[in-house]
Design a protein around this nucleic acid. Structure first.
Lengths: 204, 204
DNA sequence: ATAATACTTTACCGATGAGTGCAATATCCA
DNA sequence: TGGATATTGCACTCATCGGTAAAGTATTAT
């Protein structure tokens, strides 16, 4: 399984042969067929495993996100959250998985949607939950928590993600952190209560 | 060429055979080989053509973007720009092209980067140019025009694009317009001069 | 020891599809 | 009409790769 996951992520579905998988695993093609029942099933199982792992990342974001947040440390909390989010999204394995799922979307039409529901959507859900809580505590001004979550996520990582998906190169850590911080800046300009952001918006 | 483009975008590179292309074009496989020299060359040429077309869309955004903009119509101008941008990005052909390039990134490593440079980067460049002009005319407060352009673009279309890429479904026009308008809202909260981003309630 | 199970080896099948050779035929232009 | 060029039809090669067959070999439990 480890061998298959590595090979699929590195060389894609069509670019990986069952013999390569068997060789990398120290097994024989026949054994792989006996245990995992064909390339399709093997691939699906591996994707399912990776998705389960990706889900834990999404849930991990919710931890320590709302507890202990005050008006004074809100910005630094969001900065930290944004940095973790951006660094998590543009990780090479994540990009490889996304590219893999998009590339095999015709052969496996369900997997892309399943990934979206179990990773990005979970992240957005966790963010929305947190923002709603912060809004209830008057630390943010959020009318539509879900929309705010999307704005946060794609402000912070949208460009990096898009570029990484198309170009295939992972941006530098410094660039990621800069994007994250500036994304929070814009986020707080709209959703922060006056006094949180660097500047205030004309409130009506 | 038309036949090949359609087939490649619809069924992918590996999912399209030279015979299908020839049949769709009313030609013979042999003739296609005589004129276009193999599947690789044909594919590259088609992508090049589509990229040239995509570039015109990017440049088209710059038109009527800065001229005639005043403090009073800034918001509606940006709303219109955002709507055009979002509608342009999530068009089925665009999504299909992006998925195609990502899927074939291993066979054609350059094409993804070339697409990024000729379409999204051109859009970001045009936006940055326009925002810089508007900042010079004191209609926006933009410190980093390039970053502002990225924020604008991915606020407006980031989530739609990401979802479309993974799930493969095109969002409804109403959803696109709502995203565009709310993205402008957040954009103006940071980059608008006080008095432009007035209404932060009653979205959707 | 013995029987059941799992793994290995090697060879093979079948399908697919890119690309080619070549002679016959159509099309076009002067 | 004649000659150059483009197109066709068809059979063919070559390579890849998923998947299978069958017989032999290790492992393990009882």
């Amino acid at each position: 399984m480890d061998a298959a996951r590595t090979l699929f992520l590195r060389h894609g579905y069509a670019g990986t042969t069952m013999e390569q998988i068997a060789a990398a695993a120290g097994l024989t093609k026949r054994t792989v067929y006996n245990n995992y029942g064909g390339k399709d099933a093997l691939f699906r199982q591996i994707v399912a495993d990776v998705l389960a792992y990706a889900e834990t990342f999404a849930h991990g974001l919710h931890e320590e996100f709302t507890v202990g947040v005050t008006a004074t440390n809100l910005r630094v909390t969001l900065d930290d959250l944004a940095r973790r989010l951006a660094l998590g999204i543009v990780r090479p394995e994540v990009i490889a998985l996304r590219r893999l799922l998009i590339g095999e979307a015709r052969a496996f039409p369900r997997l892309g949607a399943e990934y979206f529901d179990r990773a990005p959507a979970q992240v957005l859900g966790a963010l929305a939950l947190g923002f709603a809580q912060l809004a209830r505590r008057r630390l943010l001004r959020v009318d539509n928590a879900r929309r705010a979550a999307a704005h946060f996520a794609y402000l912070v990582a949208g460009e990096l993600l898009d570029r990484a998906m198309l170009v295939g190169t992972i941006p530098s850590k410094a660039a990621i952190i800069a994007c994250a911080r500036d994304g929070v800046e814009t986020f707080l300009a709209r959703y922060g209560r006056t006094g949180n952001g660097k500047r205030e918006t004309g409130n009506g």
